[in-house]
Amino acid sequence: MTSLDRTSFSDRPRQPERLPCGTRFDDLLDQVADDIQPADPEHQASCPHCRATLAELADIWAPVHAVAKEQTPAPDTLTASVMERVVAIATHGWYAVLKDTPGVTRIAAWVVAVIARRAAAGVPGVGQVRDRISPSAAAIADVRAEFDLALPTAGQRTQAAGIGVAGRSVVVAITISAEAGQPLAAVAEEIRKAVIRHVRALTGLDVIEVDVHVADLDGPLDLQPS
């Protein structure tokens, strides 16, 4: 047989169940594979059958130990690929609102986004509510396949990109510019109250978190010396 031939399992000589000394072959194999101490070290130290078998197994098993030690980092693109799909699912999946009535009401994430954006825009001190980076159309392909959706428009994708949904729970992330001179912490708190109130009233969903990112200030900032 040349080394290029592959012998089928059935053609290979089977290892014996027990060595002539009575030791189980599988016990020696486990000892080598798990790198553990022998159950009977005195016997093994003097038994030619065990020593020969252990030597052979150590040689055969060496590639296994080598492969086990290999560091195999994931491709650099893996995280980005996964997160693009996850963001698409989170922002474009549907979620049930009412399951306790005949039928199920489903609301698209971008609908929640529209409500949240308009609620935030109505808070005094808020300048503009900014768009968020949108996942690509390709990334939401499997969302479409799963839910039999029409392809959302670019605008819908952009609007929904700051919305995370899971069941009845919603996490909203809103990026705004604020009017210069307004106390930002107070503006952010009012945004949270407004978003929670409006989304809950209009959809029945629970907004459990509203992250407010103040990205810019509108208008002149008059800083008086103290």
Partner: peptide, 20 residues
Amino acid sequence: VGSTEAFEVLVHRYRDRVFR
């Protein structure tokens, strides 16, 4: 509860093991 940022941390943490 929908935080993709938190999930991304988990992905980053486990990606090598998952791939291996």
